[in-house]
Every structure is written in structure tokens, then in C-alpha cells.
């Protein structure tokens, strides 16, 4: 409880500020409407109106909550209006890309740790690539793949894979290099083979690093998928919801999609954290 109280207080403060901001930002439109109708609004009416507009500048928290509720539970999940449907579209591409990207990152990291040529050739580029806004190529990938007839889940998965590949590669190389000279010398003194050293020393000591980078990678993969859903033509997925919401000024729709995406990201990170805890506990690494 002592840990939850400060967080709940700050959350309550955020919601309060949000309501005040909603009243302030939506008041203009409410007053304009009243002036057009030739009526005067009392303060109470004004506030009530700002919190219940159809297309508010800033929807109030309860409107977003209602939008989320309606999107998640109020629709058949096969409906185009269902947030669950759009979230599943985004999630499947994210997971496919994340799986491909992490696997490739882990394999290349193993190669880099065991081969000096690969290490010196590839590693500087992998590190430098972290400073480049790779996400900018997302629309191009979508359009190019569409032009050769590849559409649907795969183009988005390619972007996700590309984005999750580099954090996993860099983190896994650091993890596999974690054992110090003494531990490696000990292995050598037992005349352990390369694969024995790998399976019994390098791989186990890399696990904390692997999971830390997997968390970063899954968040990056989700962002990649969402941005991959932005180019014109995409009709499903949370990114497409964001874009169509911004075209038609459906602010409640934007905010609902945004919160759905946030919940998805949080769920994925928590899930990996859970797998991490179980794995590390089995290995005796968790405290």
C-alpha cells in the first residue's frame, strides 16, 4: 500500500488536470455553438457541455473510457468498429516481426561472439544503426512490398522485425561477453569445448541482458507495426484507427486507439517480464 499510494495520488492528479484541461480547451466551441443558437450558457451548462461534446478538442477521461469500453466490449470482435479486432491485427504483425527479429538478432550475436571477422565487420554498423531513425523507412517498405504484390501482415512484420533486430543483437552480444576472463579461463582449465563454454557459461550469463533487450525490442516492434499501418490504404490495425480518426476529427476514436495501443505495449512488456522472472528463478539468478 505504501508503494501504491504515491502512484495513485499522481494518477488522480493527472486525471484532475485532464478534466480541467478538457473544460478549458473545449469551452471555446461550446460558447461558439451557444452564440450561434443565440443562447447564454450558465457555468454549469458550459462545463456539462465541454465534457460531453461529440468531437471535443480534448475528450474527457470518462468519454475515452466509454469509447474504450464500447470498442472492446460493445462490438462483435469481427466488426470493423471493434478495437479488439484492430488490436489483434496489430498484435499479430507485431508478434510475427518480433519473433523473426529477435531470433535473427540472437543468432547473429552468437556468430559475432565466436567470429572475429563478423564482429569487426558487423558490430560497428549495428551500434551506429541505433542512432539512425530507421522508423522513417516504414512507409517505403509498405509501398514497395505492395507494388510487388505483398500486402497484409508481412510488410508490417518486416518493419517490426527490422526494429526489434538491433536492440536484441546489441544486448545479446553484451550478454554473451558478460563472463569475465577468470570464468572463461576456468572453462579452459577444464578443457571445455567451445560449445560447452557456450551452453554452460555464455548463454546462461547472457539471460538478464537478453530479457532487458527483448523488452525494448517488443516495444519497438509495436511502434513499428503501428507506423507501418499509417500509409494510405491500410484499413485495419490500431495505426489505421489513429489515422482515420485524425482525418475525420474523431478525437474519442484517436484516444481510444491510443489507450488500446498503450495497454498492448504494457501487456507485452509485462508478459516478457513474467517470463524473465520465471526463467531467472529457475536458473537461480533471481533474488
Amino acid at each position: 500500500m505504501t508503494r501504491a499510494l504515491p502512484v495513485l495520488t499522481v494518477l488522480a492528479a493527472i486525471i484532475l488536470i485532464w478534466y480541467l484541461a478538457a473544460i478549458g480547451m473545449n469551452a471555446q466551441w461550446a460558447e461558439d455553438q451557444a452564440a450561434r443558437a443565440g443562447t447564454e450558457l450558465t457555468t454549469g451548462q458550459l462545463i456539462a457541455d465541454t465534457l460531453s461534446q461529440d468531437r471535443p478538442v480534448l475528450p474527457a477521461p470518462h468519454q475515452v473510457a466509454a469509447g474504450l469500453w464500447d470498442g472492446v466490449f460493445g462490438q462483435a470482435i469481427t466488426s470493423k468498429r471493434s478495437l479488439v479486432y484492430h488490436a489483434m491485427v496489430t498484435l499479430s504483425a507485431t508478434m510475427a516481426g518480433f519473433a523473426i527479429g529477435s531470433l535473427a538478432g540472437i543468432l547473429l550475436a552468437v556468430g559475432i561472439v565466436h567470429d572475429r571477422t563478423m564482429d569487426q565487420s558487423v558490430m560497428p554498423w549495428a551500434v551506429a544503426s541505433q542512432t539512425v531513425p530507421i522508423l522513417a523507412i516504414a512507409p517505403m517498405v509498405i509501398v514497395v512490398l505492395a507494388s510487388i504484390g505483398v500486402t497484409g501482415l508481412l510488410p508490417k512484420a518486416v518493419i517490426s522485425a527490422w526494429l526489434s533486430f538491433f536492440p536484441v543483437l546489441v544486448g545479446m552480444v553484451a550478454g554473451l561477453r558478460q563472463p569475465d576472463a577468470m570464468q572463461l579461463d576456468l572453462m579452459r582449465s577444464w578443457n571445455a569445448s567451445r560449445s560447452q563454454s557456450f551452453w554452460r557459461l555464455r548463454l546462461p550469463s547472457s539471460m538478464p541482458y537478453l530479457f532487458a533487450s527483448l523488452k525494448v525490442a517488443v516495444a519497438a516492434a509495436l511502434v513499428g507495426t503501428i507506423v507501418g499501418e499509417l500509409p494510405a490504404g491500410a484499413t485495419s490495425g490500431l495505426g489505421a484507427r489513429l489515422l482515420s480518426g485524425s482525418y475525420y476529427g474523431q478525437t474519442v476514436q484517436i484516444w481510444s486507439a491510443l489507450f488500446m495501443a498503450a495497454a498492448l505495449a504494457a501487456g507485452l512488456v509485462v508478459l516478457i517480464g513474467l517470463i524473465e522472472r520465471i526463467t531467472l528463478k529457475r536458473m537461480g539468478l533471481a533474488r
Binding site: L222, L242, W255, A257, L258, A265, A266
Partner: peptide, 16 residues
Amino acid sequence: FVAALPIIGIAPILVM
């Protein structure tokens, strides 16, 4: 928590 979220999604709102 927020650092792990797809914050880029607020872009359409801020553009409005």
C-alpha cells in the same frame, strides 16, 4: 511505464 508506450501515437492529437 510511459517510456515503454508507443507515444508516437499522440502525434495525430498534437497535430490537431
